[in-house]
Amino acid sequence: MRSKLIYIIFAVGVLMAAILLAIILAENVPNSGGVAHPDLPGLQIGGDGAARMENIGTLGLAFHFLLLVQIVLLSVLGISERYRSIELLACMGGSLALMLLVAWQMYSGHQQFLETGETDYFLGFPTATAWATYGTWLAAIPHVVIYTWGFRKYIYTPEDQQKYEALLKEKSKRSEQ
């Protein structure tokens, strides 16, 4: 499965393209991309959020989930195949689970607000927006940690360094000749 990674990335890309096409072809609702504020020039409003989400809400969520999956798959692509261990894939899987959780929390929080018109606040923002603002930022931090702490284990190991230095030596020998 690990050597077939590019096929999985391709399949996810095709699925995303299909969802995008379905959204573009879906029945449009008025002002689906926002509309000018009735009183204040320069401002846009979203208006009826429930109507905007009715036709494409699920497709939008699916697109978001696939995008997060694609991000993790591409990150794994950046790691040499021989280092794609179960341990690494488990770390990446955990990172993906966190990102999916954040995406679900903001989506479901938004849906809940559309149904009730009420929301709690967290650190200055409505809860669903706080998930988007802080959650999206923080959910990728495990990725950064995997790169930084796992640098000599997964990204550029001592063995890699030796191989690379050997390549450079061969290059300098060739240029001397």
Binding site: G34, H37, Q44, I45, G46, G47, G49, R52, G124
Partner: peptide
Amino acid sequence: TSIILADDGEAAMPYGAAGIMA
């Protein structure tokens, strides 16, 4: 954010005035 929310719920929600796909 409460002032913005009272004026237009969507503008202060996670996908803003431009919507989820934007």
